[in-house]
């Protein structure tokens, strides 16, 4: 992956997860859908499990990001944090001016 493009979401980027509820395997758990978080770091690229779980050989390789969520944003209460590995296509940038 030496000529891989730069990461779309550098550490510190505020991101929002998709609300999508797909009818297949996915790594975006229900509790983290449609939530705001912050990118900790890229974990390294890998196949998109949503596609490879269907036995397809054409799963795209995407960057995976460790994304940190505040308990308050996930559950409406709590003072802890949750970090979750999320594939690039589960995320969009959470622009401050759109909030």
């Amino acid at each position: 992956m030496t000529d891989a493009p730069p990461d779309r979401f550098p550490p510190g980027t505020r991101v929002r997860t998709f609300r999508h509820d797909p009818p297949h395997h996915t790594r975006l758990p229900r509790y983290a859908r449609g939530k705001r978080g912050v990118v900790v770091e890229p974990e390294g690229p890998d196949e998109l499990p949503d596609i490879s779980a269907q036995g397809r050989g054409d799963a795209p390789v995407e960057q995976i990001y460790a994304v940190r969520f505040a308990a308050r944003d996930l559950w409406g209460e709590g003072d802890h944090h949750v970090v979750l590995d999320l594939w690039e296509s589960y995320l969009e940038e959470d622009r401050q001016d759109e909030r």
Partner: peptide
């Protein structure tokens, strides 16, 4: 014969 994600899908 199958990959890890197909296996997880089968459990789920």
């Amino acid at each position: 014969i199958f990959n890890t994600n197909e296996f997880r899908d089968a459990i789920e």
